[in-house]
């Protein structure tokens, strides 16, 4: 038996969330007294895959089929199922990403496995049971969930597990083929369109986020948010009212019906903190709120706050960050 870890790659690199997933998986393997094997999907280089040794991975399976570069639900599911079969995987760990959820849910039926998504901690395995803690109620609560059956699939929430870095350790990269046929690529994308990302930082992967609300008064003032974000190396985000009126694109909308983020630092500028917005951000490690209304509910959920005008405060913060370095 083994633990199988699904590692997502993009542009040759292993995604940050997958380094966390690899670290989670290798610790589960240790807990169960077995070995951790990864299967890589997306565009990867052998050198970067070998570096997964630093996250405790012994072996990485990789299929060099060019059509696997983009996400294809059918093909990815078959590939990972074949790897799970070959490695006799009892636990499969993947990212709680759009890819991870799409593949994990299909795999759970195909492999007759129990599935937990949005998982935030290592499992507890006392007394023969297998329990994981997961986020529920859109960030307003947690649930301890018992997983039944012989096989389990765990989708790990981003930024909830510290990635391991054991310098110098390397994983063995082994070529792997799942004998994929054209039929497995029936749902391949016709086209892939990537967004222009400010500073190249993806919001769901970011460990710092600067976010603006209606208090920014209009899209023409977003340079203040972008300047601070750029100085910090942060991604930009917004509240629902802002994306509803098209000041910002919908993929920046953070909240209960948008993206849930859990960065180390979340700076909210001119956002009052409606409960639906808090649901999307309250698992952030440190929350900073800047609002001119001292009664804004967001201050109750914040670690640091400035009661003041965002147009006055934001340039000062950007300046202070620049002076640090």
């Amino acid at each position: 038996m083994s633990v199988l870890i699904v590692v997502e790659c993009d542009g040759g690199e292993v995604k940050k969330s997958s380094l966390e997933v690899a670290s989670y998986g290798s610790q589960v393997a240790q807990l169960l007294g077995t070995s951790a094997t990864a299967v890589a999907v997306g565009e990867a280089t052998e050198a970067n895959l070998a570096k997964l040794g630093e996250q405790g991975i012994a072996k990485v399976l990789y299929d060099n089929e060019p059509r696997l570069k983009d996400f294809v639900n059918g093909a990815y599911t078959k590939l990972i199922a074949a790897a799970a079969q070959q490695e006799d995987a009892k636990v499969i760990v993947l990212a709680n990403s759009n890819i991870g959820a799409a593949v994990g849910s299909r795999l759970s039926v195909r492999l007759q496995a129990s599935l937990a998504t949005n998982v935030v901690e290592l499992p507890k395995t006392e007394g023969g049971s297998f329990t994981v803690k997961r986020g529920a109620f859109s960030g307003k609560a947690f649930a301890d969930v018992k997983l039944d059956g012989e096989r389990k699939i765990i989708a790990v929430k981003k930024n909830s597990i510290e990635a391991l870095h054991e310098a110098g350790k390397t994983a063995e990269v082994v070529s792997f083929s799942a004998q994929l046929t054209d039929a497995d690529f029936a749902d391949a994308p016709k086209q892939v369109v990537m967004q222009d990302q400010a500073g190249g930082i993806l919001l769901p992967e970011a460990d710092k986020v600067v976010s603006g609300g209606r208090g920014m008064k209009g899209p023409e003032n977003w340079n203040l948010i972008e300047d601070l974000a750029q100085a910090l190396g942060a991604a930009t985000a917004c509240s629902k009212p802002v994306s509803d009126v098209d000041w910002r694109p919908h993929h920046e909308h953070v909240g209960q019906t948008g993206i849930t983020v859990s960065p180390n630092l979340y700076i909210a500028c001119g956002i009052s903190g409606a409960i639906q917005h808090l649901a999307g951000v309250n698992s952030s490690k440190v929350i900073v709120v800047i609002n001119k209304d001292p009664e804004a509910p967001f201050f109750k959920a914040a670690d640091y706050g400035i009661v003041g005008d965002v147009f006055d405060v934001l340039p000062k913060l950007t300046q202070a960050v620049k002076e640090l370095s």
């Binding site: 609560a141 947690f142 649930a143 969930v145 018992k146 997983l147 698992s283 109750k300 914040a302 706050g305």
Partner: peptide
């Protein structure tokens, strides 16, 4: 195939500085 053993609320914030 799964069962909720217990729910919990997130720890409260210490208060804003």
């Amino acid at each position: 195939r799964t069962e909720v053993a217990a729910y919990a609320l997130p720890p409260a914030k210490q208060g804003v500085k």
